Simulated scan of single mutants.
Amino acid sequence: MLRRLYDWTMSLAARRSAEVWLAVIAFVESSVFLVPADVLFLPMALAKPERSYRYAIVATAASVLGGIAGWALGFYAYETVARPVLEFYGKLDAFEQMKSYVTYETILLLLVTSGLAHLPPIKIVTILSGVIHVNIWLFVISAIVARGARFLFLAWLLRRYGEPIRHFIEKRLGHIVSIGAVVAIVLYILYRYLAH
């Protein structure tokens, strides 16, 4: 099923309505959809490099709005809507475990790492932010910074290096950013440990 979703998402890049689909995918990725918007963003930005920053802004705006929808699901409709969605994707156990130890401070760190590196998946963090009642404006600012940084950095890489960088992005950039996110989490944990 995941492969079919990926292939379908890739096919949208060739359509005239690709920019609309980019907004739709970026929106639903932040709350319920499994395939990241990067899958559509990369071929679109490569096909029209002069529009890559525009696509990055569209993806960022839609992703933040989708994040707000995920936050609202967690805040207002966890039991009736969000919980079944997490069960469907097999993420409920991870979510419940995370919910038991997350604090207001760590959720902000998770918003940044999930926005930059999908670590953990953004939909889990947006819903969790609503469940633990993170201030909506703080949530929005964090989402804009993290998602904007990701899409604008990808746009810059694609404009500067073109097609050759695509393979690097698809194969290695996720690992590099994930390692950076893990380092940030470890440094935060060490800081908290040493502060006490």
Rank of each mutant, 00 (worst) to 15 (best):
G66E: 07
S114I: 06
A143N: 02
F168I: 12
A61E: 00
V85A: 13
T106D: 00
A59G: 04
W71P: 00
Y193R: 14
F88P: 01
L109R: 06
T9Y: 10
V125L: 03
A155M: 11
L128E: 05
F168L: 14
L187C: 09
V134D: 02
R15A: 10
M10C: 10
L73R: 08
P49V: 03
R16M: 06
R16P: 10
L92Y: 11
R83D: 03
F33D: 05
A94G: 11
L187H: 02
S129N: 04
H167V: 13
Y55L: 13
Y191D: 08
W8F: 15
V177K: 09
V112C: 10
V85C: 04
I124Q: 08
A72H: 09
A146N: 07
L2R: 13
K99M: 13
W71Y: 15
A47H: 10
L190S: 11
G115H: 06
G66F: 08
L111K: 02
P84L: 09
Y55H: 05
W21F: 15
R160I: 03
A69L: 15
V140N: 00
L157G: 00
K99T: 05
R3W: 11
A18H: 02
D93A: 14
D93C: 01
V102T: 14
E87S: 11
V64Q: 03
A61F: 12
A72D: 06
H133C: 07
F33K: 08
V145N: 04
S17G: 08
P43A: 04
V32F: 14
M10K: 15
I68T: 01
L128D: 02
F95E: 03
I141Q: 01
I169N: 05
K171W: 11
